[in-house]
């Protein structure tokens, strides 16, 4: 588990380089990614619900990114985009595709629905935090 969290740090760190994030911010991107994954693993162990763990993790990632954006005076997306990447349901997509390929439509429907639910949970979490964003910058206008 510790190995996974350390790997999440490096995975997010290197992913941020792919998106040309400037050198000074790379460490913070890695931090957001590994914290998000830590929270995901923790909640998953506790509740055993994939959707709920994704939701809470995405919520935490958005909050951390927001705080970092304020501290570092950067657009929030610098931290949010790499940070959220480990949660993107690539595995769900792959399993859905694999089941379709094997004509196992029952499994395909299950994984397909789960993938959409995860994507939805992440979206709602980001929306939730970004809405506060909107509130505060509308006020300052």
């Amino acid at each position: 588990m510790i190995l996974q969290i350390i790997s999440a740090f490096f995975a997010t760190f290197f992913f941020a380089i792919l998106f040309n994030v400037s050198k000074k911010e790379l460490g913070y991107c890695g931090l957001v990614g590994s914290l998000g994954w830590l929270i995901y693993l923790f909640i998953f162990k506790w509740t055993d619900s994939v959707i709920f763990s994704n939701f809470i993790s995405a919520l935490s990632i958005s909050i951390i990114s927001r705080i970092l954006a304020k501290l570092r005076k950067m657009p929030i997306t610098i931290f949010l985009i790499p940070g959220i990447i480990p949660l993107v349901p690539g595995a769900g997509m792959y399993k859905t595709m694999y089941a379709v390929l094997n004509q196992n439509f029952k499994e395909a429907a299950f994984y397909g629905a789960q993938t959409f639910e995860i994507a939805g949970a992440i979206a709602i979490a980001i929306i939730f935090i970004s809405s506060f964003d909107t509130l505060s910058h509308k006020k300052t206008k």
Partner: peptide, 27 residues
């Protein structure tokens, strides 16, 4: 091969499009 495929497709994941789609909709 499952783990390897899932890990190796990650660099192609459209992270910017996903995040921006959500944030643009909100605004």
């Amino acid at each position: 091969f499952d783990n390897i495929i899932i890990g190796s497709i990650m660099p192609m994941v459209p992270g910017v499009a996903i995040t921006n789609a959500i944030r643009d909709t909100i605004e």
